[in-house]
């Protein structure tokens, strides 16, 4: 399974072309001042993080009265007109959601928007790689409507029946701010890293409060499967390769032709390390350590050269 996931990651990675990223964040209707404040604050924090990502980020954030179906339709229409197939698109929904057994609705100022309507709006966007992060209550009820090949869908709840207000959004925002979310230290946060971070923090919240968890985040990123809680097999491949936030100079290095040779060597070493790691169980521990140390030292030296 691990090997398959690795292979898929490599496949997605080799096809990667750096494009623009379109971020749309919506803080839906709070209903009460406390929720209103919380949703708006989360959306604003995301707005700040996304805008800090660089010039390739196109960020739109809808809060307060702006968070209406009309404005959302308008904004997604704009993205549909501007985004190219090599661009990425990220939609984050924060707030309350409902599910009546058949249809999910995201609560907005004025008329709500259904998951079917949202899917339709997203389908008109050319970006081949899309991510919808639905952090609302009952958001699990939206996954099947929103899923599509090339689109990862993350929901704060496993089904439409988990109806209590969620805390997932809080930790999704935190994932964009906490360097610890960048687990592989690649100077970027992938959708999978952010999902795992937020999911773990959400579980920790309920555990520390000694409360029964009323939300269990899920994702679906094959466009064909059922939502899952954790990466396994082909589930998770798109998310692990979907960079939400770039926090370092990795893009710059990749585009510098003078460093192509070093980058090729670096990639070769990274693959060697991956192969070593996956063969670890079958290796003599001292031999593994010796080979790993040698490869890591060499990789570090190359990185040093690249950073000069």
């Amino acid at each position: 399974m691990k090997t398959l996931l690795l292979a898929l990651c490599v496949l997605f990675g080799s096809a990667k072309v750096w494009g623009a990223v379109y971020y749309v964040t919506v803080a839906g209707l709070g209903g009460e001042p406390d929720y209103e404040q919380r949703f708006t604050a989360a959306a604003r924090d995301l707005d700040k993080s996304f805008k800090a990502a660089g010039s390739s980020a196109h960020v739109t954030t809808l809060t307060g009265k702006d968070a209406s179906r009309a404005r959302l339709t308008e904004v997604l229409g704009t993205v549909a007109r501007e985004a190219k197939s090599e661009d990425d698109f990220v939609l984050v929904l924060i707030g309350h959601g409902t599910f009546d057994g058949a249809e999910y609705k995201f609560n907005l100022v004025g008329p709500d928007v259904t998951a079917t309507e949202l899917a339709g709006m997203c389908d008109r966007i050319a970006a081949r790689r899309q991510l919808v992060v639905n952090t609302t209550s009952a958001s699990g009820g939206s996954v099947m409507m929103l899923r599509r090949p090339g689109r990862g869908v993350i929901a704060a709840t496993k089904s439409g029946t988990e109806k209590n207000a969620t805390v997932f959004a809080r930790y999704w925002v935190e994932a964009m701010q906490d360097p610890a979310a960048d687990v592989d230290k690649s100077d970027s946060v992938s959708a999978l890293e952010a999902y795992q971070y937020a999911d773990r923090k959400t579980s920790g919240f309920y555990e520390s409060q000694k409360r029964l968890a009323t939300e269990h985040a899920v994702f679906e990123d094959t466009g064909r499967g059922e939502p899952v809680r954790a990466a396994s097999g082909s589930e998770g491949a798109l998310l692990s390769n979907f960079t939400i936030l770039r926090i370092g100079a990795s893009q710059k290095a990749a585009n510098d032709p003078a460093r192509q040779q070093l980058l090729a060597k670096k990639e070769e070493l990274e693959q060697k390390i991956d192969v070593l790691k996956y063969g670890k169980a079958a290796m003599d521990p001292s031999d593994y350590k010796k080979q790993l140390t040698a490869a890591l030292v060499e990789l570090a030296q190359i990185q040093q050269e690249l950073d000069k």
Binding site: D184, K185, K289, T293, L296, V297, L299, A300, Q303
Partner: peptide, 22 residues
């Protein structure tokens, strides 16, 4: 530090420490 780099081979601060140690 090897455990850190095993998890994230491209982790620059850890790479620097490894080079220092080596």
């Amino acid at each position: 530090v090897l455990l850190a780099l095993e998890a994230a081979p491209g982790f620059r601060p850890a790479q620097k420490l490894l080079l220092e140690l080596e």
